[in-house]
Design a protein around this nucleic acid. Sequence first.
DNA 1: CCAAATATGTTACATTATAACGTGTCTTGA
DNA 2: TCAAGACACGTTATAATGTAACATATTTGG
Lengths: 163, 163
Amino acid sequence: MAATIFAEKTETRLDNAERLCAAHGSRLTDLRRQVLGLVLEAARPVGAYDLLDGLRADKKGAAPPTVYRALDFLLEEGLIHKIERLSAFVGCTHTLDGSHAEAGHPHAAQFLICTGCGQVTELDDHGILHALIDATRQIGFTVHHSTVEAEGLCAACRDAATA
Amino acid sequence: MAATIFAEKTETRLDNAERLCAAHGSRLTDLRRQVLGLVLEAARPVGAYDLLDGLRADKKGAAPPTVYRALDFLLEEGLIHKIERLSAFVGCTHTLDGSHAEAGHPHAAQFLICTGCGQVTELDDHGILHALIDATRQIGFTVHHSTVEAEGLCAACRDAATA
DNA sequence: CCAAATATGTTACATTATAACGTGTCTTGA
DNA sequence: TCAAGACACGTTATAATGTAACATATTTGG
Ligand SMILES: [Zn+2]
Ligand SMILES: [Zn+2]
Ligand SMILES: [Zn+2]
Ligand SMILES: [Zn+2]
């Protein structure tokens, strides 16, 4: 127990996550809830070992498998995403805020990584997804999962750079 | 010296690569040529440490930085690509076979990873790229580099599965 | 040839991720 | 109620991937 209390907004999203899990028979345990909370509180993608450090504030002897297992669960549930180019994790904007229809399992998304400020924006753009599906279907390839990540500058950082 | 001799087709592609480098003032040294050869001979994406093992057939005491530096060079030249989801590398189909206009620097591409046979296909699909550019421009994000990787089944593996 | 730039060698280490096995906890049906 | 099984978590050890830092060698241009 003694789970850390997060900011109110985070707790609300955690409650949403808990409902989403319950809705299809999986459990957002205290541990998983805490790892998800740590991901959500971070303004930017968080590495597994940063999460481990965060966990250790509560649970002294926590080890890597603890956090990796929680992350695997959260990925399966579509509650977080892994940013491959950063080996780091972000909360899913779609499942946790609005009540997205596709919640409860991993979903296709696209990520914009700003190399200026480090922030990552999640897109759910049908155009990109369809272009990918179209291109692959032409050569008989069936897509099960897609990774789309763009690095560049967000609007704020670009303006700061040209000023 | 004593650089390994590769299959004739590979040597041809290596010669192409050497010309591409020379054309804009960089050098495909023996070491880089050998690493590129090892990548090209592999039917599938190769990890850095597999390449290191390959290198050691010639150069007994080779160490990780040797292969990572060669890989960095080859990536810069657009001669290979890194598949992020596999932490592995493939030769670029476009720059090494036909003489692609964009050769000599990294370029946007998309990769189809077959989870059945492990083979990776490189696409250079304008539709996907444009969909990405369009979606990002709408929110003021400027893309410098993109990673697009799809996992699924190639035509052959899908047919084998349904049979 | 000499100096600068480039490329490689070498040692040590950092970061990310998983295997394997033991322990607790919860459920559920006999 | 209570065993049996499933699930979650703890713990130890190690695998796999990637870099920092500094020394040496090779190439290039003057
Ligand atoms: Zn999402
Ligand atoms: Zn930014
Ligand atoms: Zn390419
Ligand atoms: Zn296949």
